[in-house]
Design a protein around this nucleic acid. Sequence first.
DNA 1: CACGTTAGTTTATGCCGTAAGGAGATTCAA
DNA 2: TTGAATCTCCTTACGGCATAAACTAACGTG
Lengths: 264, 264
Amino acid sequence: MVYAGQGDARRSMALLWRAPGSADVRTGPGPKPGLSVDMIVEAAIAIADAEGMAALSMRAVGERLGRTAMALYTYVPSKSELVDVMHDRVLAELPAGYDLEDGWRAALTSWARDTWAFYLRHPWVLQVSQARPVLGPNEYGMLETVVRILHETGLEAGVLRRVVGTLIHFVRGAAQTIAETRQAPKATGVSDEDWWYARSAVLMEVATDFAERFPMVTWLERQGAFRVQDETVPYLEQEAREVFEVGLAILFDGIEAAMARAAL
Amino acid sequence: MVYAGQGDARRSMALLWRAPGSADVRTGPGPKPGLSVDMIVEAAIAIADAEGMAALSMRAVGERLGRTAMALYTYVPSKSELVDVMHDRVLAELPAGYDLEDGWRAALTSWARDTWAFYLRHPWVLQVSQARPVLGPNEYGMLETVVRILHETGLEAGVLRRVVGTLIHFVRGAAQTIAETRQAPKATGVSDEDWWYARSAVLMEVATDFAERFPMVTWLERQGAFRVQDETVPYLEQEAREVFEVGLAILFDGIEAAMARAAL
DNA sequence: CACGTTAGTTTATGCCGTAAGGAGATTCAA
DNA sequence: TTGAATCTCCTTACGGCATAAACTAACGTG
């Protein structure tokens, strides 16, 4: 888990809220800066997107920019501050103004799908701690978007805030499973098929009393619950996708129930 | 993120499914083993519980047992296999046989609370990748428990499996937020109060147009949605707790809606 | 032109997982 | 009883990581 930088709060916040692309034109002695915060953040995001958080090192970012790792410290106080800025920067991709004409449920469905897709585009975001929000502009933007949609439900503010939390937990959780699934073959060097084949064979040897020990799991399996329709998509990914769709429906039904209860 | 070991599947599975406490009495030449897999796993869990996953190093585990890091490699093929065994071992703590007399909703509430408490006792478990399940006995035990409760709902097997996934996403997500919150002061050396005080002060300076830019968030804040009742519990933790309770209710209402729909 | 400022480098420290090889203990076969 | 085989555990070493400290070289200003 990557934690938010604890350095000088003023410097961190300035880094986050500074207008993007602001050149910070410096006049005075000394050599011209060859890099910029924007360039560094961009390079770091490219690495994290392509190779995952584990591959994101100061050396790697520096190398991608033709510099050493230490050169970055002129622009960014530490790796964790860099991650903070990366995080908020990338959140800017999230759409904001969902159409509320067809009601909150349609808008929230779009929001959930977009957010889910966003996490899959930048899976490393899921490894940034949520404990201490970065308090960057785009983080607030994301919150603003959900609250605006849910405001349509007429739910009381306190409940609404908790519903927001619930939705985010769910979307993050669902995306995390897929993200980890996709990462696993690269991280371990073993394909899903090979892994499952090797494991399940040994499982049957080693757990001979499986059916008696886990009757409900066995029942589920015999009911075909672990089969998927689309054979072209990897099994674990397909499963995660289905959980996402069913989970969304359940959550929305639950929100409707809460509205009905509040209306009494 | 910690990934499952990709070593020899047979050796891994044997490690997982071996009877706990099995002494593996070895006869033959060579000195008597001074350690055992169980001792190592226990020590590693103690470290992870107390100091977090980041502090779990082979050197640290060795030191706790009065050995060097390399001594562990006689018993365990690699760190990632050790983490697998730790994971499955600790899952054994989860209660299994929930009483179904008062219906699935009561049982599932108990299950969710227990699982949530479990994750907070062992927050590092949330950092073990779910992508490739360890396939250990206790992982199946956990699945068995939830399926047994949900079987009461009469939902079709395919839907049931997805509901299980949804519930686990939610509980994990909720626990993760609290776990990270608790970890943060230790990891960064800055208390929640200090952190928030420093950040929010700068936020007001730097984002002067906050109210116009984020009207719904401002509305939520003015409605008092970010206030908590119990002043003695840290704010972020209290918030996470409330999200958990409200989220559970919403999910259960959603499950009931799915049942009603299926009954038509 | 000298001076202070700054970008970027090199070098070093102390972590990490783990490969390689060796020392000493222990058991068994001859 | 002794030599060989086997096993535990150690030391050493390698290549990675973030980053502290000291240095070089470029540059604008007096």
